[in-house]
Amino acid sequence: MALVGLFFVVPIVQAVTVSLSGWPGVGPVEIEGLGNYAAVLASPEFYHSLLRTVVFAVVVAFGIVSIATLLAAAVSRRVRGARIYRVIWFIPGIAPAAAVAVYWNTAFQPEIGTVNAIAGLLGLNTNSALLASPSTALYPVILVSIWSGVGFAFILILGGMEQIPVSVYEAASIDGASPARQFFSLTLPLLRPILSITATLNLIWAFNNFTTVWGMTNGGPGLATTTLPVLVYRTAFIDGQFGEGSAIAVIAGAILLVLGFVSLRITQSRGVS
């Protein structure tokens, strides 16, 4: 309990304190009031970044859950090799996110990157530089985040699917429902609790994802991929504005805690926790 206090409660109090101060990184913290919050809420960068983060998190969470559901549906009917799929699909989630991000950064480089090399094999343009243009840089980051998150979501969703009794499907087959019909009218509704938990968890993780974004783009070009965690890092540790950085962190944290509580509610109401 003491450790939880030392590493959770004290830091949060401290984060709020710093966010109320003009702390430059050294020396004592002097509370100055709500100036940092006013500055943050008045800065267009913050809203730009918040919007980016929300778009990023929503698209990533939706992508992860859709692909994971599709894959789980394909594997759950005892496909040959199902055990192997289960093991290898989790690897992108196991590998260090920094390594994954650095690799994919090279993969999207023109000519020499894997993505462009494969595009070349298919006879497509090989010198696209998605990461170099502010208007497209977010897409590769979204794709990579989906790629590394599917494995875990897949395991959760598959676990949910395997708890649906076989007899339900047998009854549906006798009634003449096609496999597609069974998927949409039986599997999806019965999975709704698991799907919503998985989606919320991934929403939170994507919202909070620092490594993939930082590793692939450092938040650039310009501010094109600066999500809130990256903005906090930039403001506090690169620009030395610890007070303002903390204010952003507290606002981001508040949004996340609300999301977290919503997800916990959903979880607890089903008695899973």
């Binding site: 939880v4 590493f7 830091p11 919202f207 809130l228 965690p229 981001a252 805690l257």
Partner: peptide
């Protein structure tokens, strides 16, 4: 419940205070 709440505390909120504490 305390531990559950602690698991949803985002790292982004902890970065600056940890820096301070470590410093």
């Amino acid at each position: 419940r305390v531990f559950l709440v602690a698991t949803v505390v985002p790292l982004v909120l902890l970065v600056v205070p940890y820096f301070q504490l470590f410093d």
